[in-house]
Amino acid sequence: MTRYLRRGGPRHDGRLRMFCFPYAGGGASAYAGWQRWLGTGVEVLPVQLPGREGRMTEPRFTDLPALVADLDRELGEELD
């Protein structure tokens, strides 16, 4: 399990996975109701960035390429 994802339940293979990145200044909680709205055909995966909400104590990234590299490393297995 990666620290970036806030899953509401177990992974459901075969479903479309939708990664939801927060807008500037926002957090993963912005997508709290999306799973309910989209139903069982889509797995909604809110991405929680460092320095936001439950990861507030972690330093924020200030370098976009470094953030993308960390996301790739952390989410790689999810991107099949």
Rank of each mutant, 00 (worst) to 15 (best):
R11W: 15
R55F: 02
C20M: 15
H12T: 11
A28F: 15
L16W: 14
R15N: 07
G8F: 03
D80Y: 07
P59S: 05
G8R: 15
E58S: 04
F19I: 03
G14I: 09
R55K: 04
G26Q: 12
L45N: 13
L79W: 12
T57S: 12
L45W: 07
A24M: 15
R73M: 01
P59H: 03
G26N: 12
R60Y: 03
L5N: 06
P65K: 06
G9S: 14
G76E: 08
P59N: 02
G8N: 13
F21P: 00
P59W: 02
V44Q: 10
V68I: 06
S29F: 10
V42H: 11
A30I: 10
D70K: 05
H12E: 06
L71Y: 05
W34Y: 15
L16P: 00
Y31D: 11
E43I: 08
E53F: 08
T40Q: 13
R73L: 08
L16I: 05
A30G: 05
G14L: 13
D13Q: 14
L64M: 08
R3H: 01
T2V: 09
T57M: 06
L67G: 01
P10M: 09
G26D: 11
T62V: 02
T57Y: 09
L45D: 00
G33S: 07
W34Q: 03
A24W: 14
G41H: 06
D63S: 08
M18F: 11
G54S: 09
G54E: 06
L75H: 04
E74L: 07
Q35V: 04
G33Q: 09
L5A: 05
R73T: 02
V47E: 04
L71T: 02
D72G: 07
V42Y: 12
P22A: 08
P65D: 02
M18E: 06
L67N: 01
A24P: 02
G76C: 06
A69H: 07
R6Y: 13
T62G: 03
V68D: 00
R3T: 04
R6F: 14
M1S: 08
V68L: 10
E78W: 15
R52G: 04
R17Q: 14
